[in-house]
Design a protein around this nucleic acid. Structure first.
Lengths: 331, 331
DNA sequence: TCAAAAGTGTTATCCTTACACCCATGT
DNA sequence: ACATGGGTGTAAGGATAACACTTTTGA
């Protein structure tokens, strides 16, 4: 192994989001091997070739279009992940891969291709990876039963010298990310929470990366469905960003059909933000924001009074600087 | 030239910010050649070597520390810029450079080294690069006199087919970025504004990158001080981000001395956000946010009643989820 | 006629904005 | 005494969060 240089490759990773039947889904690839128990979900990945594509985003759109037969709506760069060890497998050789994470929104289409670059591709609910993030039916029990007790144990331990120089002590970080009681949950801190769980050795990725802290803890649970490499970190970043963006950009509509009922819209927002919203306040918000207009038609009744159908008012983009659904604190 | 592969290098670019005497400054390097008229300011740049540093941020801190003898406070990744043509010089050879932009905050120290990697280093006011962003004394005249008329001309032209497929027409983008009348200025849209000026061919970088639109326009002004490559885009991103971050994180204090008067704090916030703030409202904001506490001492009078000195209350980090100075719309 | 979902009206509270005024010091 | 910047009290308006109730359909 040479001391000073190592070749670098750039990869583009996309967290492609769609919503269907009240569930936010993301597109993942899995190795479709029979007996292999260690097959893990991965985000679709494509190399960046500066000769073929003028910009990073164009490179991304192009291979997603080719390989998954998907057209993407809103696309935004999230973060560039370059930590050594992110592709850690014992005795790592080969080039260092720096990957640039992207968030992309899409409507589900039947004809999503079933394989991407030889891997099986499928849509999976994102809360499978982050069960503690779904508060739509109240606080998930796993938080009180499993997560918080273990994190409090972890916060009680004495950190190593490297960690002690960081700005905030463990207990404080815990309080900020997960809230104290059941009330101070900030749905945008998805990444903060995942990183604490990682540091505390409560997700499988931490064990795999060989963190000593994790090994100490005999039968620690492995929370949520794991992913390959650091893809769950990228996904956590994507969820954080999308939950925030909802509030000042009309991005939800990229996940809706052309016509929808207000309840469907509310359900979609709730699915993404992982919280239950107050019906009237949500409706007033939508109305005041002038984000939608009635189509005149009504939805085929789904077991009650038929609902009026609406469409997105594209003109809002020209009228207001930050058109979004500033969904508030509680309810 | 080979068709399919081109080697890629990763560079880290830092927009290092400090504030002194009411001016936000950034650290730039300049070629110190006698007659060379084309020497342009550049952001400090360092390569990323994954063998030497475990994470990107550690790599950045390390070479800034070594080369500029600066200790950085808050550091945050901004965006990864990889467009082909960003290092455009006619007949481009050599590796493609992808650069990861960072925002870093620092207090000015006398002993900032005078050269970085052989280039002269100095602190320069950031409004030199973006004169239209400084609204502290009201709307800058250059906006009404020069910028808006030229941008309106540009918005009136018929765009090419590639641009027409983009979401928003020129006139709408203009309105969103620069506001309609003097009142709807959103100080966070620094990057949007710079990119419009670039597309309209009103900054030197656009001419240099050989945009046809720019050449058409005979004696177009070259607004603001130019920078090398796409560094001014990185700086615009940094300013946007910092102006936004002020509002929900106590980052200003990284730019202040340990003890300061409330007026100094207000001046610093005004310098960064480029706006004049209402005195009482600012003070009430600071008080309600519980961000500071009196030291008990008073400042040596500077031509009036002596001011009480305050210090940052670090405890706030543990108390509130989003401690910042939510400076409001006007005033 | 009853369950299920759609849809509305109103009030208390807090936060933001703006106003106008008083205080302590140096010259 | 007066200029200069420091420092405060209070009222009007708007946005938010919560309340409970009516309407329209299908089974």
């Amino acid at each position: 192994m040479e001391p000073r240089s190592k070749s670098i490759e750039i990869g583009l990773n996309a967290a492609i989001v769609a919503v269907e039947k009240l569930e936010p889904l993301i597109l993942v690839t899995t190795r479709d091997e029979a007996g292999a128990g260690d097959a893990r979900d991965a985000l679709p990945f494509g190399p960046f070739n500066p000769l073929a594509h003028r910009t990073l985003e164009m490179g991304l759109r192009s291979w997603v279009g080719e390989q998954a037969a998907l057209e993407l709506g809103h696309v935004e760069q999230l973060y560039t992940f370059g930590d050594r060890g992110r592709h850690a497998s014992p005795g790592d050789e080969g080039p260092h891969v720096v990957s640039i994470g992207y968030l992309a929104l899409s409507r589900i289409r039947e004809n999503t291709r079933a394989t991407i670059a030889g891997y099986r591709a499928e849509w999976r609910p994102w809360y499978g990876y982050f069960p503690w993030e779904d508060w739509r039916d109240g606080r998930p029990e796993i938080l009180g039963d499993v997560i918080m007790p273990l994190l409090h144990d972890w916060a009680g331990e004495t950190p190593g010298p490297a960690e002690r120089r960081l700005a905030l002590p463990r207990a404080v970080r815990l309080k900020l990310a997960f809230g104290e009681d059941t009330s101070h949950w900030d749905e945008e801190r998805v990444l903060d929470r995942y990183e604490l769980l990682y540091e505390a050795g409560l997700v499988e990725e931490a064990l795999r990366d060989g963190r000593a802290a994790a090994l100490d803890r005999g039968e620690a649970p492995r929370l949520g469905r794991p992913m390959q490499f650091d893809h769950r970190r990228i996904l956590a970043t994507a969820i954080s960003r999308l939950r925030g963006k909802l509030k000042y950009r009309p991005v939800v509509f990229e996940l809706m059909h052309d016509a929808f009922t207000l309840t469907e819209l509310q359900n979609t927002v709730e699915a993404i933000s992982g919280r239950h919203l107050h019906k009237q306040n949500f409706r007033r918000l939508v109305e005041k924001a002038a984000l939608v207009e009635p189509t005149g038609a009504v939805a085929a009744a789904t077991g009650g009074r038929p609902a009026a159908l609406y469409r997105f008012r594209r003109e809002i983009l020209e009228e207001r600087p930050a058109p979004g659904l500033r969904v508030g604190a509680r309810h």
